[in-house]
């Protein structure tokens, strides 16, 4: 691995001070499962690596039926995947977390790391956005909250400034008759980077869809909401025709590229197929 200096700040203030001091030449290390790979492959060449794992309080995960879910930036994918609260109320997120790499990777990889890496194909991002996640961003003497859907600006690029650190993620409590689903498409059943990822989070009232969010991964420079498809479904009874129409609309909203993992045309087609499947599965979960 390329040579670098290493720091273990004990507080957030210390961490952001280091980031400011080494403006642009430092990287934050949390789980390390992306950062260390990128250093080894010389995609990133930081002179300074700042390990934030010694900062207290950031590994907590709390759930409250009213306030919802809140977890710090050191919470791992494996903790999310196996948390009974997450599995019950945010099953799309739990499913997505379980599809990140292997158990070995998930024991290190953090959800916030997945967020900050901002890969268009990151599994946890679509369900987080679908469930309305908000992140807390810390900088010198300041803290701000950003809706996750507004957090990404491009592949690997976010609204985060060089001296800012994401400290926590919150998800609102779910209302009754809700469900969330994540379906990943890859060539294998595990150890995949998504060709397409589809998250659907919805609330039903009888057969009528009161709330729906459809979020697509790996088909645009960032995860995207299929807002037209959502609008089509919202307020209506979700019958087969409507589901197919919404899925078709989601497909039209996607903007995939062609690469080694799949062609743009195939990815679009999968958005349609998987969006319909995800809506149906969510429906079944509620019923």
């Amino acid at each position: 691995m390329r040579r670098f200096d290493y720091f273990e700040p004990q507080t957030l203030d210390e961490a952001v001070a280091l980031l400011s001091r080494y403006n642009g030449t430092a990287n934050v290390l949390a789980g390390g499962t992306d950062l260390l790979v990128e250093i080894k492959e010389q995609i990133r060449k930081p002179d300074h690596v700042i390990n934030i794992k010694k900062i207290p309080g950031m590994n907590r995960l709390t759930f409250d039926p009213v306030a919802g879910l809140n977890f710090g930036s050191l919470v791992t994918a494996r903790e999310i995947e196996t948390s009974p609260d997450v599995r019950r109320d945010y099953s799309g997120l739990a499913q997505a977390a379980s599809e990140v790499g292997s158990i070995q990777v998930r024991n290190r990889a953090t959800i916030v790391g997945n967020i900050c890496r901002a890969s268009p194909s990151a599994d946890t991002l679509p369900p987080l956005i679908a469930d309305g996640a908000i992140v807390t961003v810390f900088s010198e003497g300041d803290e701000r909250r950003v809706a996750l859907e507004d957090f990404f600006v491009g592949p690997g690029r976010t609204v985060l400034r060089p001296n800012e650190i994401v400290t926590a993620v919150e998800l609102p409590a779910v209302t009754p008759h809700s469900a969330s689903i994540y379906i990943k498409h890859g060539r294998r059943k595990a150890m995949e980077l998504a060709t397409v990822g589809v998250a659907v989070s919805l609330t039903l009232e009888g057969a009528v869809c009161r709330r729906i969010r459809i979020v697509l991964g790996a088909v645009a420079p960032t995860p995207i909401r299929a807002k037209k498809a959502e609008a089509l479904a919202q307020g209506h009874a979700l019958d087969e025709d409507l589901i197919e129409a919404a899925a078709q609309t989601a497909m039209d909203e996607s903007r995939p590229i062609s690469n080694i993992r799949g062609s743009a045309a195939y990815r679009r087609e999968m958005v349609r197929v998987l969006t319909a499947r995800a809506i149906r599965q969510a429906q079944e979960c509620v019923q």
Partner: peptide, 12 residues
């Protein structure tokens, strides 16, 4: 790489 050169794994 083993990510994009896709050998069948335990679940496959």
């Amino acid at each position: 790489s083993f990510v994009d050169y896709k050998m069948p794994l335990s679940m496959d």
